[in-house]
Design a binder for these strands. Sequence first.
DNA 1: AGATACAGGACCGTTTTAGTACAGTTTGTG
DNA 2: CACAAACTGTACTAAAACGGTCCTGTATCT
Lengths: 180, 180
Amino acid sequence: MLRISKMTDYAVVLATHLAVSDTPRTVRDLAGESGIPQPTASKVLKLLAKSGVVTSFRGARGGYSLSGRPANIPVLDVVCAIEGPVAVTECSSEEASGSCEYEGSCEVQANWQKINVAIQAALHRITLADMVRAEPSAELVVLSRSRQDALERQQIAVPTARTQEATDNDDHRADQRISG
Amino acid sequence: MLRISKMTDYAVVLATHLAVSDTPRTVRDLAGESGIPQPTASKVLKLLAKSGVVTSFRGARGGYSLSGRPANIPVLDVVCAIEGPVAVTECSSEEASGSCEYEGSCEVQANWQKINVAIQAALHRITLADMVRAEPSAELVVLSRSRQDALERQQIAVPTARTQEATDNDDHRADQRISG
DNA sequence: AGATACAGGACCGTTTTAGTACAGTTTGTG
DNA sequence: CACAAACTGTACTAAAACGGTCCTGTATCT
């Protein structure tokens, strides 16, 4: 869920590489050591520079360096640099006139903002400094609980024990694959 | 940033509609009152049923109803029902062999999980019951601060006052449009 | 039996994404 | 000064994902 684009992933990788050296690095170096194709790395770094996360130095002996201390740069900035400031739902981005006169839908839309805030807060707390120290936490399996909840819900569903054919999804989705 | 697909948006809308009535509703009804095209609504509801968020009743007088109390169904379940359990980064989904032998990248990848957990925790806290009561909170503007942080960072960047041409992005991205 | 309604795919046009390429500009160096 | 090294900006393309529709099958109620 909540797919973050590959470009954004690259951006975090590149920013992390910049975080561990204080002299400017060239695109070629960064691309080489991160395994990201050079033109693509260039594109990503250009975006990062445009939004001020990194600073660019042109000309011979130029390159990119972080615009600040890694501990002061939240991952949110990196993400926003690539994906733009668009919100989670579409109708919250434009004037949202016309299509959203269904009040039932739009009261939901108002609450998407709550979710939006929560997610962005989470991304704001984590900084690039946190990203460099790799600590593979073991409590990641928590994620897959939600699936289990769904199954437990099956038992206590509506009292009328009618068909309940939704129970047939035994484990053809056991590829939870979070532990990565 | 973090675009949630329109399908997922639909799913939350539909689930919210189901949350306010305890008798099963047909696709036609739900589609009609939510403004979602009927075939699309059907597709979404099928997915929700498959992952157990809603329960389906076939045949005449059939329909869909929530599989549990709205307060017990986190939005995370709805989102996962549509988008699947894939993680934020791509290389954390497969076995991630082969492409990820760059240790610099992969230590970052390990930390993406941290972000993943944070986001999913946020989505887990909010339930369908929260989505029903529409309370347009006014403190949403917090989001756009991150942009401002970036600008402030420009001032204190690397001490060597070289080119700093990244400062030229005055406000051609002032369309922060979060207030919705 | 017939109408109602969900299930499960197949299908298709459009948009987005990822990646590449190229011409231009800035800056250090010989 | 000329050249090379690097970034800047824009345009372009192939592939994948997304949004949406439709059709056939099956279950259930009347």
